[in-house]
Amino acid sequence: MSVDPDTLLAILAMMAATVACRLVGLLLPAGIEWRGRLAAGLEAMPVAVLAAIVAPTLLATGWAETLAGAAVLLAAWRLPLTAVIVIGIVAAAGFRALAA
């Protein structure tokens, strides 16, 4: 249960980098209202970030992931979140088993 100084330093460096990224918003006042192009860009942020996270997995990993992604996409159009998650897990496990 020891803590190595080099490892501790590395963990603290990772923490500092992560916290610095997460606190960037503090440079702005809370509850700020945006207008014009800035507002349009900011409002698009959730979709832009989430799409950039999932797209490489869904479109550039393998056909099992792409097919499972298509199933999730269809499900997300109509069904509640729990159903979408179950369909995603089953589709990913199934298509990967077929691809293996």
Partner: peptide, 8 residues
Amino acid sequence: LMSVSLMR
């Protein structure tokens, strides 16, 4: 980016 958006 996310923290800038969340500050609102």
